[in-house]
């Protein structure tokens, strides 16, 4: 039987560059590799990889495995799972880390079931047990109301990691590493899905994921007009506008604005939550914010348990004066 060795990161590439989650995974993987005195491996899959293998080394990888093939231009479950199955068989990593992204949440379980091992999804913390050397995976469960720590004794131990839960290393261009191309045969006929088109629905302005400040509206905003008022505040603060799920479900704002467990994960300096109750599934997406400020007419609303500052009141009366005063303060 092969010996399982090394911490492997599955790297994602966006617009020709390593995506943020990949650098975060490499940061976390570097720590795990050092703790277990093993190599940090990274696998990169695309039609063209460009300079990304060197970048993965700069961000901490010891060895980078590359798979380039025109059939891998877009992520598709059945082509990517074949590549990953082969890579795991050839390299036998002990731990495999992926991002909790559109790709990772689809690929990790399919690969785990193909390999006959378990995967832990959406992890917030990963540690190596010093005695058993097994990976311990801590993830939120019950909509963020609780956390659970899992382990397993079949290899590789697979975990997906929540975006922004781990910090990347400062890239060091002088770091040395090995780059090894892998050969994988792909049979186009075995891919039973076809991507017809990819439609971007990104809203104009600052991206939620990158914003330093976010103004988020909930069900209590009452309709699309209310979000116009939030946009005004956002403009003054150079903030992005987000939403809890009901405004998205009701079509007041695009689905891509949803923050939470099944929406975007955000970590701004300032998060202003207006007329939302602070359900655990919403907090799952914003509890990493440095300062949460809540405006809600219900003094018992759960959001006040997470907030640093709050006002109890009708947002329709509180917000205009708040926006005006912020404008004044920032101008002066």
């Amino acid at each position: 039987m092969a010996e399982f060795k090394g911490i492997m990161v599955y790297g994602e590439i966006a617009e020709g560059n390593l995506s943020a989650i990949t650098t975060e995974l490499l940061g976390c993987g570097r720590r795990l590799a050092d703790e277990s005195k093993e190599d940090l491996l990274c696998i990169l899959i695309a039609d063209q990889l460009g300079e990304t293998p060197q970048k993965a080394i700069a961000f901490g990888a010891d060895k980078v495995y590359t798979v380039e093939n025109p059939l891998l231009k877009e992520y598709q479950t059945e082509s990517y799972v074949v590549v990953m199955e082969k890579a795991v068989q050839d390299i036998s990593p002990r731990v495999l880390l992926m991002g909790q992204t559109s790709v990772g949440r689809d690929l990790a379980p399919r690969l785990a079931f193909r390999l006959g091992v378990s995967a832990a999804m959406d992890c917030l913390e990963l540690d190596i047990d010093p005695e058993t050397k097994l990976l311990q995976q801590t993830r939120p469960v019950y909509g963020g109301n609780a956390r659970a720590t899992f382990s397993s004794d079949s290899f590789p131990q697979i975990a997906t990691v929540r975006q922004k839960a781990m910090a990347p290393l400062e890239p060091d261009k002088s770091r040395k590493g090995e780059i090894t191309p892998l050969k994988v045969d792909l049979d186009p006929a075995a891919i039973r899905t076809k991507v017809i088109e990819t439609v971007k629905e990104e809203v104009a302005g600052i991206k939620l994921e990158d914003a330093e400040a976010i103004v988020t509206g909930g069900r209590g905003i009452g309709g699309p007009e209310g979000f116009k008022e939030l946009e005004e505040l956002a403009k003054v603060l150079k903030a992005a506008v987000g939403a809890s799920r009901p405004p998205c479900d009701n079509g007041w704002v695009p689905d891509t604005m949803q923050v939470g467990l099944t929406g975007k994960i955000v970590t701004p300096e300032l998060y202003i939550a207006v007329a939302l109750s602070g359900a655990s599934q919403h907090l799952a997406g914003c509890s990493g914010a440095k300062n949460i400020v809540a405006i809600n007419r219900d003094a018992e609303a759960n959001i006040f348990k997470e907030a640093r500052f709050g006002v109890v009141g009708d947002w329709k009366q509180v917000l205009p004066a708040f926006t005006a005063k912020v404008k004044e303060l920032l101008a002066g």
């Binding site: 300032l270 405006i295 006002v311 009141g313 509180v318 004066a321 708040f322 005063k325 912020v326």
Partner: peptide
């Protein structure tokens, strides 16, 4: 869970006070 509640004589005043507090 230590939220500082900002108050005012009216909801509007509370809003303005909140801005001042954040500053």
């Amino acid at each position: 869970g230590k939220c500082e509640m900002v108050e005012g004589d009216s909801p509007a005043e509370a809003g303005a006070n909140l801005a001042a507090k954040l500053r």
